[in-house]
């Protein structure tokens, strides 16, 4: 209807081409952003769907209370606890390594180290964080396991201790950098206040900085725990494939993640009960790590100190 020759009041201020981009792009970009939501929905539905199928064949109560896991060999049994205990064993060992070392490194870097030392150590820790997990798996098998077996004669070729220690080494950088961030966020003025009263460095670090950064430190430990639970290749390579309800770190065990890999490497027919176990175990893994991540975010926010 409008005449191009005589621009109306409105169209005088419009350039049709750019206007079009400004209409299309927000929608396109919005779709990109919603992809993350779709991913989550995809994960949840995939897991729930097949898990539901699985529980139509295997009673949920057997799964959640059973203490024997042998879905591939007769007589079959589907008690998740051996996998959970194996996972926990690895995770606890890993956290015993990573949390104290990561926290101590963070204290050293944020409170003691000279700028030059920080400039050297931080990139090294970044490299440590970027090493692929399969490389750590090789490291566990070729170096850590022989050392452990020379110290403990009853340790197996595959054992939880070796894998746990190496998972711990892998997550040191994460604990360190998250804790250090929390400690660096503690204002300079609080440290000055303590130094001016005659406090020594460790007193400032342990009585002022660490308490003030406590929520961030706890959050980093929770995330480390979650990360260790989800770690796959190190445990697949070095911890073994024998699901066992044991607390002995020198024995071979199997974690949830390693079980999933084991099944997917074999020729398990789609739709069978064995195939369903991947999803039931995957669901358990997802729920645990999801809850831990939520917990970490909650801790970091809820107990944040005001300075």
């Amino acid at each position: 209807m409008r005449s191009d020759a005589v621009p109306t009041r409105e169209s005088m201020f419009k350039n049709r081409k750019t206007h079009l981009m400004d209409r299309i792009m927000p929608v396109v970009l919005f779709l990109c952003a919603t992809l993350s939501i779709l991913t989550t929905i995809g994960i949840v539905f995939t897991l729930i769907g097949e898990t539901f199928n699985f529980f139509r064949q295997i009673p949920f109560i057997d799964f959640i209370t059973g203490t024997k896991w042998s879905p591939l060999i007769e007589p079959k049994s589907f008690g998740i606890w051996p996998l959970i205990s194996g996972t926990l064993l690895i995770t606890v060992i890993a956290c015993l390594v990573a949390v104290p070392l990561g926290l101590a490194s963070a204290i050293y870097l944020s409170e003691y180290a000279h700028k030059r030392v920080r400039g050297i150590v931080k990139p090294i820790l970044e490299v440590l964080a970027g090493v692929p997990t399969i490389v750590y798996g090789y490291f566990a098998l070729s170096l850590v396991t022989p050392v452990i077996r020379s110290l403990f004669s009853d340790a197996g070729v595959f054992n939880a201790l070796s894998a746990g220690i190496v998972v711990g080494i892998m997550i040191i950088p994460m604990v360190c950098s998250l804790s250090e961030d929390a400690m660096t966020a503690v204002p300079r003025s609080l440290r000055d206040g303590a130094y001016a009263l005659g406090a020594t460095r460790f007193e400032v670090a342990l009585k002022i900085v660490v308490p003030a950064a406590f929520s961030g430190i706890v959050a980093s430990a929770v995330l480390a725990f979650s990360r260790a639970i989800g770690e796959t290749m190190i445990v697949t390579v070095a911890a073994g494939s024998t699901p066992k309800l044991t607390g002995n770190p020198l024995e071979s065990i199997q974690t949830m993640t390693a079980y999933i890999v084991q099944v997917s490497l074999g020729d398990t027919p789609h739709g069978s009960v064995e195939y369903g176990t991947i999803f039931a175990v995957g669901m358990t893994l997802f729920v645990i790590t999801f809850l831990l991540n939520i917990l970490a975010q909650y801790v970091a926010r809820r107990f944040r100190e005001e300075y």
């Binding site: 003025s189 000055d192 001016a196 009263l197 406090a199 308490p211 100190e305």
Partner: peptide, 21 residues
């Protein structure tokens, strides 16, 4: 000792800096 010195020579800063306690 720098600690003893600071005990004898107290300081108050520009911004109030109470500890989170």
């Amino acid at each position: 000792d720098v600690e003893t010195l600071r005990k004898k020579v107290g300081m108050v800063f520009q911004q109030p800096n109470p500890f989170p306690k």
